[in-house]
């Protein structure tokens, strides 16, 4: 089976789910944070030599087992606070961190491809600071606005973050496994977007560019997949089916 982890209102993810299933990722099980956390009998084992396993039982009785997982499209942004709402206030932050730590581990332990692996900066990939994106984008060969941040003269001023200021339209390029996917974009820009994904160590990355100038605006590990259309579905299918 394949897993799609996403919020219930993640329309781009659900759009991708129907198309990936039609392509052959079947069965594709969609799991929302609520389904995950209201499941029971979580069993994550790590053995002394390094082997590991995960299994849990959904509320409807279906059992999810690592041995049967062939790939994961992971768009879990975070563990939603309402999951621990029934706990006493003093325990809620602790429980959120414990659940986050568990998800970081079991997703990383899978032998199957996972797009994206969880990291400290985000369960579905790194939500990097604008300064870091500006730096990485420059390293990747993308044109960027100057990013400034600081506290001059003892007075705070807001981050001069890269914004859509002046950008009439934003073009989102989806980069998967180092390949920027956009048939209508110049090859060098596509390559730079792919390079950014590699530098950011994020297998699935949405790169926002100024549609007019091609300048970098921002990036996200949870992009709107619909922006890439069927070529993105094709690339996702290849990566998740192990054919990439």
């Amino acid at each position: 089976m394949w897993l799609l982890l996403c919020a219930a209102d993640d329309v781009p993810a659900l759009w991708a789910a129907t198309r990936l299933t039609a392509r052959g990722l079947d069965p594709l099980v969609v799991l929302t944070p609520e389904l995950l956390h209201y499941s029971f009998r979580w069993e994550h084992r790590l053995h002394s030599h390094g082997a590991s396993s995960i299994s849990f039982t959904l509320a409807d009785g279906r059992r999810i087992d690592s041995a049967a997982i062939r790939g994961v499209l992971n768009r879990l942004p975070f563990v939603p606070p309402h999951i621990v709402g029934r706990l006493v206030a003093a325990d809620r932050q602790y429980a959120l961190q414990e659940w986050t730590a568990l998800h970081m581990s079991w997703l990383s332990s899978l032998r199957a491809p996972v797009l994206n692996l969880p990291v400290m900066e985000g369960l579905c990939g790194a939500w990097r600071h604008p300064s870091e994106w500006a730096w990485l984008a420059g390293e990747a060969g993308l044109t960027t606005e100057v990013y400034q941040q600081g506290v001059p003269g003892g007075t705070a001023f807001p981050h001069a973050a890269i914004t859509t200021r002046g950008a009439a339209m934003v073009r989102t390029v989806i980069a998967i496994d180092g390949q920027g996917i956009d048939e209508h974009l110049a090859e060098d820009l596509c390559d730079s977007c792919g390079r950014l994904g590699v530098l950011a160590k994020t297998r699935l990355l949405g790169v926002d560019l100024d549609a007019r100038t091609g300048a970098f605006i921002g990036a996200s590990p949870r992009p709107d997949l619909r922006e890439g259309g069927e070529p993105v579905i094709e690339a996702l299918f290849s990566s998740l089916s192990g054919r990439a």
Partner: peptide, 28 residues
């Protein structure tokens, strides 16, 4: 950040040839 999940870090540990204790994380 690897320290924010002990079992996540333990996987890096075993990849380097160290042992890690037999571990079970469960709510059952």
């Amino acid at each position: 950040g690897s320290n924010s999940s002990k079992p996540f870090q333990a996987q890096a540990v075993t990849r380097r040839g160290f042992f890690t204790p037999e571990t079970l994380i469960t709510n059952d």
